[in-house]
Write a protein that binds this DNA or RNA. Structure first.
Length: 479
RNA sequence: CGGGGUGUGGCGCAGUUUGGUAGCGUGCUUGACUGGGGGUCAAGAGGCCUCGGGUUCAAGUCCCGACACUCCGACCA
């Protein structure tokens, strides 16, 4: 069939999931490789998705009192090195500036891999009193980490993100902030990206360099691998002490503030691709889709009324706050259908002479390709509802994938068999030892994803050493 | 950083085994016909064959060396 022609350009996900992913990134024109390895160009369509993510997430941050700032991109080596764990954690992947013009620099400067140090340095100079706390900062920027191997959105040497950094008077406040922002990410993923998440805490081995506790949201991709999609860290007063950030407290003593940081990145776009995409291409959750409805007039040359009506409909949709696009190009019907499916546009609106007579238009949804005819009267409301239905259905399908591929297991052999088979998340008990965690990697081929915030409270046996323990934990193969 | 794969018009590839004028599909341009799922025909434009050495009368093809992309590991968001 001719309709499958375009599809042939995208490798089937069952044949080669990695190739399928790369095909979508390129063919849907989200990214292009640049001339520097690991540095990708976000093309207009890909960047438009990121802009929608930014706009919505930024609104959520601001609702909880956060303000945006912009920190320098370069960090002096001496500043970066003040906190040992952070340095050790990031040392292998820092890129350095050593020349200024033709002069060798006195001290080399790091491209920021993350900005904790810059924020601390700044707070050191501006913080004086408890009355200034909390400071709830965020910045949208890119960071550089010299990764060994790279993939669009999932792992690149430069990536775009937001990093929130906050300082608080008390440990309790900071811990509450850490949790609040983790929940913010979870809400965003579920309500905006239609991706269910597992919320939990990272093990000592997996936590952020320098953090006292790292929390994460883990998502399951269609190949049943795990993708960490956002993280929130509690630092205690570790960095404050290392960077000498102090304030005078209510009792007139000098104190160290308690700190958090939290981040999410353009990797979210990769998560969306691998959560909702199919063999026809990208499937975008309506709330971040740059184009929510694409209108295709049919046989418009035969009857000028067709185009007029389509334009009138689009005006109504625009008025209802729906992002639309009109395609009057000379391409054939089939071409347009395949094209917008590949680009993941949630709804295609078709209107031809036949529909004109019936006072209706044809709506085709991307998620399940279902066709419905809707009266032109009240089109704004019906499309709005359709977009919500698509969101709900995408969420339900992703939830099903997560639930059907999460298994309660008791031995490492079972976990190994699962990981080497179809894959998925293994839910087990864990004694808490690094030895057993490493053994799971070594013997079962999985890494710990997180200890879920909702712990069952039951007692069971560690799948490696067999010791009685209570901690619930998820394992999986991760990106 | 270890192991594979691939570099040829914009994109996807053949040609490399056995050296001998640079090919195909698609896309692009122009025109006509079409038009409810990648339509038909015609005429065109477009190539330091990744880069650098070497062998040869002659290299896309053989030899040596770089580089890039990509996949699988290890590491990370």
């Amino acid at each position: 069939m001719a309709k499958d022609k375009k599809v042939e350009q995208i490798t089937d996900m069952e044949v080669d999931f990695a190739q399928w992913y790369t095909d979508i990134c390129r063919k849907a024109e989200l990214v292009e490789y640049s001339s520097v390895k690991g540095f990708t160009i976000l093309r207009p369509y890909g960047y438009a998705i990121w802009e929608n993510i930014q706009r919505i997430m930024d609104g959520m941050f601001k609702k909880t009192g956060h303000v945006n700032v912009a920190m320098p991109v370069l960090i002096p080596e001496s500043l970066l090195k003040k906190e040992g764990e952070l340095v050790n954690g990031f040392a292998p992947e820092v890129a350095w500036v050593t020349m200024g013009g033709s002069e060798q620099l006195e001290e080399r400067l790091a491209f920021r891999p993350t900005s904790e140090t810059m924020f601390c340095d700044h707070w050191h100079s501006v913080l004086q009193s408890y009355r200034q706390l909390p400071m709830l900062y965020n910045q949208w920027c890119s960071v550089i980490r010299w990764e060994k191997t790279t993939r669009p959105f999932l792992r690149s040497r430069e990536f775009w993100w937001q990093e929130g950094h906050t300082i608080h008077e008390t440990a309790e406040e900071a811990m509450a902030e850490t949790e609040q922002q983790l929940n913010c990410y979870a809400d965003f993923c579920e309500n905006v990206l239609a991706m269910p998440v597992v919320k939990g805490r990272k093990t000592e081995k997996e936590k952020f360099a320098g953090a006292e506790a790292t929390y994460t949201i883990e998502c399951m991709m269609k190949d049943r691998k795990a993708l960490q999609s956002g993280t929130s860290h509690y630092f205690g007063d570790k960095f404050s002490r290392a960077y000498d950030v102090t304030f005078t407290g209510r009792d007139n003593t000098l104190q160290y503030p308690f700190q958090t940081s939290w981040g999410s990145t353009t990797r979210l776009i990769g998560a969306v691709i691998m959560t909702h995409g199919d063999n026809n291409g990208l499937v975008l959750p309506p709330r971040i889709a740059p184009v929510q409805v694409v209108a295709i007039p049919i046989a418009a040359h035969k009857n000028p009324e067709v185009l007029e009506t389509v334009k009138a409909i689009l005006e109504k949709l625009d008025a209802a706050g729906i992002r639309t696009k009109l395609d009057v190009s000379e391409q054939s019907m089939g071409w347009k259908c395949a094209e917008y499916e590949m680009r993941g546009v949630p709804v295609r609106l078709e209107l031809g002479p036949r529909d004109l007579e019936n006072g209706q238009c044809c709506l085709v949804r991307r998620d399940n390709r279902e066709k419905v005819f809707a009266p032109i009267e009240g089109i704004g409301e019906s499309v709005k509802k359709l977009l919500d239905d698509i969101h709900d259905n995408l969420y339900a399908m992703a939830k099903k994938n997560l639930e059907e591929n999460t298994f309660d297991l008791t031995t490492w052999e079972e976990v190994r068999d699962m990981a080497q088979g179809r894959g998925g998340f293994a839910h087990t008990k864990w004694c808490g030892s690094l030895e057993c965690e490493l053994a799971m990697k070594e013997k079962a081929g999985v890494s710990s994803r997180c200890m879920p915030l909702e712990q069952s409270g039951t007692t069971g046996k560690c799948p490696v050493c067999g010791k009685e323990c209570t901690t619930d934990i998820y394992w999986g193969v991760a990106y």
